[in-house]
């Protein structure tokens, strides 16, 4: 990788700052990757940025930023202001293009007259997107940054240091409850189970923050989760966090149509709720963890994916 390829390129990344640490974290990862490519990157919020010439501005999900600002009008006003001094502005997305929150972001994107949507994930969602979305959609593989690749095996502690058989963390939904009822009947009842009422994910709870969740995962064998919506989506953040904590990720597919493209990354770790406990019982922890890590490291890095994406955009 030519580490100087973005030398002289000035980039502004806007993160929500006060809500959804996922997007804050992703903004910092994108910043790290772009800096590794030689870019000069500032990570700011809409309340803290300084107007100055930038070649690129990446907005870490407009609806999250709007929620953080508590005002749609102010959000749009700031974004239009940024457009006056940044040559190109794009929104970065990390979610299903079929869920309702995405359409809120899309609407903001259109109102702000932004024509680039970068979907940072594990699978191209172009086919699932609406015609309106397709006009602005660009997929970028959410690989590991340089520091993450170096840390990939750091937490690969032995099984005996992982007393929690499984961990399930998220907010409480009817679908998740239905699944957990089955899981605790069919697999085991002694896992770490933390489900809170629906509320924005902030650092102050009741959700676990990044550090707390990571600590729990370092004592866990299998990290289990399912989406809070019925649309098929592979959460790259969840997989990466599992790798760095040395746990095996297991995604529950609640899609009633069940079938999905088996050539997608880590499809052997994604199972329908009806088949889930059989699937997990057949896995060997150490073997699966090694396979998962090896495959993850074989995928393109975030630096390579971003560079490829930016090149495609000219």
């Amino acid at each position: 990788m030519n580490t100087q390829v973005l030398k002289g390129v000035r980039i502004l990344i806007i993160i929500p700052g006060t809500v959804s640490y996922f997007y804050d974290e992703e903004g910092r990862r994108v910043a790290e990757a772009l800096r590794n490519l030689g870019g000069c990157v500032d990570v700011e919020t809409l309340r803290s940025y300084t107007p100055q010439p930038y070649d690129w501005c990446f907005l870490m999900n407009l609806s999250e930023i709007e929620f953080s600002m508590q005002s749609k009008a102010k959000t749009l006003q700031h974004v239009r202001h940024i457009k006056s001094f940044a040559t190109r502005v794009a929104m970065i997305l990390l979610e299903s293009v079929e869920m309702k929150w995405f359409f809120q972001s899309l609407q903001l994107l259109q109102e702000a007259d932004i024509d680039i949507l970068l979907d940072l994930g594990f699978h191209n969602q172009y086919e699932r997107a609406t015609p309106e979305t397709r006009k602005v959609y660009h997929f970028i593989f959410n690989g590991l940054t340089k520091s993450e690749r170096e840390a990939a095996y750091q937490m690969f502690t032995p099984l005996e240091e992982r007393p929690l058989p499984w961990t399930f963390v998220g907010h409480l939904t009817k679908e998740r409850m239905r699944f957990l009822n089955k899981l605790t009947e069919n697999l085991s009842r002694d896992g770490f189970l933390y489900l809170v009422h629906f509320t924005p994910v902030t650092e102050t709870g009741p959700h676990l923050n990044q550090e707390q969740f990571f600590t729990v995962l370092t004592r866990t064998q299998y990290k289990i989760w399912c989406s809070h919506h019925p649309f098929f989506y592979i959460e790259s953040i969840r997989f990466r966090m599992a790798l760095l904590a040395g746990t095996v990720p297991m995604k529950v597919n609640l899609d009633p149509h069940r079938a999905f493209d088996q050539s997608l990354p880590f499809s052997y770790l994604i199972h329908h709720e009806d088949d889930f406990h059989d699937a997990i019982n057949q896995l060997d922890f150490e073997e699966t963890r090694q396979k998962f890590a090896t495959e993850f490291l074989e995928y393109p890095s975030l630096e390579a994916s971003l560079l490829d994406g930016l090149n495609r955009l000219g």
Partner: peptide, 8 residues
């Protein structure tokens, strides 16, 4: 099926 007693 539901869950309660589930928060700090």
């Amino acid at each position: 099926v539901d869950m309660f007693n589930n928060e700090s």
